[in-house]
């Protein structure tokens, strides 16, 4: 899967999870830029990403994520 495909898929997931159709997944996007992105919706985001890409994250991996760029690297490493 190309980088751009991962970002496209993530954009759909972000819009679904945060109920905001103006969101676009970019490498520097992080929780403090999205109102709805709190610790609870972060869990929901991770669970949705796991399901969409058919991968599993460990608690340690989730804890290290700083922004969407990190998330994309993690997804690509698992595929």
């Amino acid at each position: 899967m190309q980088d751009s495909e991962v970002y496209d898929k993530l954009t759909g997931i972000f819009r679904d999870v945060f109920d905001d159709d103006s969101l676009t997944a970019r490498p520097d996007l992080s929780a403090d830029q999205v109102d709805e992105w709190d610790s609870l919706s972060h869990i929901r985001l991770m669970l949705t990403v796991e399901r969409a890409f058919n991968i599993k994250f460990s608690a340690g991996e989730i804890g290290k994520l700083k922004n969407v760029g990190d998330l994309v690297h993690l997804i690509e490493a698992k595929q």
């Binding site: 869990i43 991770m46 669970l47 399901r51 599993k56 460990s58 608690a59 989730i62």
Partner: peptide
């Protein structure tokens, strides 16, 4: 166990 440790979910979110 992953989801319990992560977020204290009582059973798998699935």
């Amino acid at each position: 166990p992953v989801q319990w440790n992560l977020a204290k979910l009582p059973f798998s979110d699935a």
